[in-house]
Design a protein around this nucleic acid. Structure first.
Lengths: 203, 203
DNA sequence: CCATTGACATACCAACGGTATGCGAACTAG
DNA sequence: CTAGTTCGCATACCGTTGGTATGTCAATGG
């Protein structure tokens, strides 16, 4: 990519728009940020913005995709550093908890995301990013008999929601032990998944 | 309340505004509904709306409070129908799951709520309504030694988030067994709370 | 019966997201 | 090298929106 003067300038303008849009959305929320403010921060005009994106929601969609990708990469990275399926699962959960607590991602990913794009599209995007790793990890745990045979979709949603809300709370909490306590509670929940498997440990 | 002609008219106007606002917010989402549409549906003008509420967010806040109160009442009602602390807890969770799945409450309470008012205020309002019952139920379970001694706040957030996300998913899901599967998975999670208590069963 | 207040209606405004058009520099065909 | 085309924006403009300032008239209370 970026062959020629024009293409390079184009990529840079788009990147600047994304960067400033993300910064402002994360800091003040989607509704409180006007397009005028974004293009002013980026040093361009609304013409440039509407040349790269179809509108304000589309810019937000691009920002959200970027944020989700970062989180997904960190989760996948943490998981791939382990071999045992159970370790991969728990390490991914733990990494998600810390990655989603980042205030630069929090608001865009967990608060404005569902409201701006609608819950359905937000869920679909989340599923395509980090949510996919969670479902796959659970599926493998079921397949290898580590946890009992059961539908993974409800489980994935329950765990995803739990971690999302926990991350939201942790970001604004003041207690220094809150992260440790939350992880302890979540860890007990996860452990219960395999502990409560009296029967079939065979694939 | 409602003594005198003027006071009665006032209450009725406010109630109509709340009813139509809630209907439209629930159906199309906060951002997609204009004040003009609301006051037209209510048969009044913007002057009336701004006489009763300080603005669009304030009207939404009133609608959210109403929705949260309904859910909290159903949760408390289901819990009060039992005696055993554990039964009260699980019955409340189950009732919340179905009450929050109602499409008339869903969007206002779980999607637009945090985005419009900010997560902090939303959490505070939720805590004052149904969230309080959850925290109290958990506290009692800890106090009576049914579940192990641990900080209840992280646990409450994890469970609250799990149920919120599950309700969101259930509202748009098509599978007839999804509700049963979700409750089964959540039920296992809850059971694990008391099962994973090897030591202190004394207060 | 009159002054006051409360519950609105009316008229208006700035700001917003979005669109239509203009324009010059970068590419491309000959 | 050059003419023509396209691309990447800038400029100017528009309808709608949330919000405000002011007017109005009936209910209230003394």
């Amino acid at each position: 990519m970026a062959e020629g003067v024009r293409a390079r300038q184009r990529d840079q303008t788009r990147a600047t728009l994304l960067r400033e849009g993300r910064r402002l959305f994360a800091a003040h929320g989607y509704a409180a940020v006007g397009l005028a403010e974004i293009v002013r921060a980026a040093g361009v005009t609304k013409g440039a913005l509407y040349h790269h994106f179809s509108g304000k929601p589309d810019l937000f969609r691009a920002v959200l995709g970027q944020v989700q990708q970062e989180v997904a990469d960190r989760v996948a990275g943490a998981a791939d550093r382990r071999d045992d399926p159970w370790d991969r699962f728990t390490a991914g959960c733990r990494e998600f908890l810390t990655a989603a607590t980042d205030p630069d991602r929090q608001r865009v990913m967990l608060v404005d995301g569902p409201a701006v794009l609608g819950w359905t599209e937000w869920r679909s995007l989340d599923e395509a990013a980090s949510g996919r790793h969670l479902a796959e990890a659970l599926a493998e745990l079921v397949r290898t008999g580590v946890i009992s045979r059961q539908p993974v979709a409800p489980l994935a949603h329950l765990l995803s929601g739990a971690m999302n809300e926990a991350a939201l709370w942790l970001a604004g909490s003041t207690g220094p032990a809150d992260l440790a306590d939350t992880w302890a509670a979540l860890s007990r929940m996860l452990d219960a998944l395999r502990a409560a498997d009296p029967a079939g440990r065979a694939g």
